[in-house]
């Protein structure tokens, strides 16, 4: 297939001079949390493999994630999961053609942020 047009015409938007908005910020955050959760999935597989076959790997992971830095990582994965979940539901509504009006996009954006924070607090309380 032929390549996309390669011209010297400027690309839009110019991200360097583009004012961040909640819409664009939440959009890129969906991708970043998705990538970050893929790292979490890899760690989960290693953890299960360690539990089944490699006791020293399991010990190392348990030690790392009971430390402060490990716990911060774990909680960042909880936050990322809840955000990606809530914003993913928002995307499913968009896929169904619903909620595209600008005021609704802003409202659902704030709703997603609030819901993912509340869910994360609930998970944290559940782990106590």
């Amino acid at each position: 297939m032929s390549q996309p047009q390669t011209s010297s015409r400027p690309l839009s938007p110019h991200l360097q001079v583009y004012k961040p908005q909640i819409t664009s910020t939440l959009s890129i955050l969906h991708r970043l949390t998705g990538l970050w959760l893929a790292v979490a999935a890899a760690v989960l597989v290693l953890w299960l493999y360690g539990l089944a076959f490699d006791a020293s790997l399991f010990q190392a992971l348990t030690g790392f994630f009971s430390g402060l830095f490990g716990k911060v990582l774990l909680f960042s994965w909880v936050l990322a999961f809840n955000y990606h979940l809530c914003n993913g539901i928002r995307h499913l509504f968009w896929d169904a053609g619903k909620g595209f009006e600008l005021p609704k996009v802003y409202r659902s954006g704030y709703l997603v942020l609030a819901a993912s924070l509340i869910l994360s607090v609930l998970v944290w309380l559940g782990s106590l």
Binding site: F58, F81, I89, L92, W124
Partner: peptide, 24 residues
């Protein structure tokens, strides 16, 4: 997969948060 992961993911996160400890 996204739709399946809504209940599965919530189950996983809350189950794992709920276990008493993380020993083998």
């Amino acid at each position: 997969t996204a739709i399946f992961l809504i209940p599965l993911g919530l189950w996983f996160v809350f189950s794992l948060a709920g276990v008493p400890d993380y020993s083998a």
